[in-house]
């Protein structure tokens, strides 16, 4: 069974033994406080802001920055060789509502992902998992992918992509659903029934979230560089 439902071959020579040994030696004397905060693995799916038909298996490795916010690294699989393909920030409804209106479309809802059973914590028993997912169902997320493994990119190419998440039945590709259900021995349908009691954001899904119901694309633009070097810059 493949580690990820998207298989690409990253170019490059195998890691040399000397390199690996040295890394282990130096790593032992270094601090890793920010990544030691990562305590949770969530699996779900993302699709591109301008193309729902391109969907990605996304493994979230998350840390709480505080009760209202988590920051997650997104990998394309659960194993040691997984590729780091993006980031996700997860905020409570209260924090989401503080965002400027032009920011809100970049964020997606989690209610359907949780309630439909497709978002899960590999290896965690349902009864434990559901205690946290009750909270996640009410949150909003902002996901950016930098590496388009679903189209077979062997390296991270092009510009970042704003990703969206599932919001209703019929969106998730059956082949991807089958791949993940089989790999983890989970049943989305069965979990959906277990989670029927959960509810989404208290104020309902904000109309500006989920790309304001439309789509999003990213482009790179060449700009003139400000030249004045005036030491530390003050923002007003």
């Amino acid at each position: 069974m493949a580690a990820s439902c998207h298989d690409v071959d990253v170019p490059g020579k195998p890691t040399e033994t000397g390199t690996a040994l040295l890394e282990t030696a130096t790593g032992a004397i270094q601090g890793f406080a920010p990544i030691n905060q990562i305590h949770q693995h969530l699996c779900a799916f993302h699709f591109y802001g301008d193309d729902m038909t391109r969907q990605v298996e996304a493994h979230h490795f998350c840390a709480h920055l505080n009760e209202d916010m988590r920051q997650c690294l997104i990998f394309d699989g659960p194993d040691a060789g997984a590729r780091l393909i993006g980031l996700e920030y997860i905020v409570s409804e209260e924090l989401f509502l503080t965002l400027p209106d032009e920011e809100k479309p970049l964020w997606h809802t989690h209610e359907f992902e949780v309630k439909s059973g497709v978002l899960f914590m590999p290896g965690v028993p349902g009864v434990v998992e559901r205690r946290d997912l009750e909270k996640v169902a009410k949150t909003y997320g902002k996901t950016i992918h930098f590496w388009q493994v679903d189209r077979g990119d062997a390296l991270p190419l092009g510009v970042p992509q704003i990703m969206m998440a599932l919001t209703r039945d019929g969106q998730l590709r059956q082949d991807l659903a089958d791949c993940v259900e089989k790999k983890y021995g989970v049943s989305f349908q069965k979990e959906r029934e277990n989670r029927a009691y959960m509810s989404g954001p208290a104020h309902g899904i904000h109309p500006l979230a989920n790309a304001a119901g439309k789509g999003l694309k990213t482009d790179i633009r060449e700009v003139d560089l400000p030249t004045a070097i005036a030491g530390a810059r003050i923002f007003t």
Binding site: D50, A209, G215
Partner: peptide
């Protein structure tokens, strides 16, 4: 920037979404 004297910015803009089901 060294050869061209220019920088890069990233724009996120509203666009159409290719869909296989209604959204959201």
């Amino acid at each position: 920037w060294r050869m061209h004297g220019k920088g890069f910015a990233v724009d996120v803009t509203a666009s159409e979404m290719k869909r296989n089901a209604p959204f959201p």
